[in-house]
């Protein structure tokens, strides 16, 4: 059940059903929240999550799509990295002058 609708927040406007590129929602009774009719066809694109005016939708992953955590090696820059930070900003963030 990839998108999970909080039925307390949902106002049954049908926007999620309207925008879903995969058409995973069913919305038979236009007064009740949509159902997830085709959960296996979810693309996890988040269209429903982004466009829900009530913020009533969250995505839930099946186990095989979980990202298994692995600790990062770097973290925030240390002292003496100012020059690299400046170059990074210039190269990527278009912040070229000081």
């Amino acid at each position: 059940m990839p998108p999970v609708i909080d039925k307390n927040l949902c106002n049954a406007c049908g926007i999620c059903w309207d925008v879903c590129p995969q058409d995973v929602f069913t919305f038979e009774n236009r007064k009740e929240p949509p159902e997830i009719g085709y959960p296996k066809e979810c693309w996890y694109c988040g269209a429903c999550y982004m466009d829900c005016p009530k913020e009533a939708i969250r995505l839930k992953l099946p186990l095989q799509l979980h990202i298994v955590p692995s600790p990062a090696l770097y973290g925030p820059p240390k002292r003496g990295e100012e020059e690299n930070l400046r170059k990074a900003a210039a190269f990527t963030r278009s912040v070229i002058k000081e």
Partner: peptide, 9 residues
């Protein structure tokens, strides 16, 4: 690993 960089980055 995307943990590095300034807060702005």
């Amino acid at each position: 690993d995307m943990s590095w960089g300034s807060e702005e980055d």
